[in-house]
Simulated scan of single mutants.
Amino acid sequence: MILTSANTLQSREIIEYKGLVTGEFLIGANIYKDLFSGVRDVVVGRTSAYEDELEKAREHALKEMEEKAEALGANAIIGLKISYDNLGGTMGNTILVTAYGTAIRYEEK
Rank of each mutant, 00 (worst) to 15 (best):
M65L: 14
Y50F: 08
I31Q: 12
A74L: 05
N30E: 10
L20C: 09
H60E: 14
M65F: 08
S37M: 07
M65D: 07
V42H: 12
I78V: 12
E55M: 07
D41P: 04
E13D: 12
A69M: 07
I14P: 03
I31L: 06
K56S: 09
Y50W: 09
E53I: 04
A74I: 07
G19K: 06
G38P: 04
V21R: 01
L72H: 10
A29L: 14
K33E: 11
F36K: 13
I77T: 11
V43T: 08
R12W: 02
E64L: 13
R12I: 03
V43H: 05
V43D: 04
I78E: 09
D34K: 04
R40Y: 09
F36A: 15
I27K: 00
A49Q: 10
L35P: 03
E16A: 13
R12V: 02
A29R: 08
Y17H: 15
E16H: 05
G38F: 06
E55T: 06
S48P: 11
G28M: 05
I14S: 07
R40M: 15
G23E: 03
H60R: 15
S37D: 13
Y17S: 05
L54R: 11
G23Q: 03
L26F: 15
L26W: 09
A69F: 01
G73Q: 01
D34R: 10
K63W: 09
S37Y: 03
N75H: 14
V39H: 15
I77A: 12
H60T: 09
L35Q: 14
T47D: 10
Y32Q: 08
R58P: 00
E24Y: 05
N75I: 11
I78K: 02
V21T: 04
H60Y: 11
I78R: 03
K68I: 08
G38S: 06
N75A: 06
L20G: 01
L26I: 00
L54E: 09
E13N: 12
D34L: 07
K18G: 00
G19L: 10
V39M: 11
L62A: 01
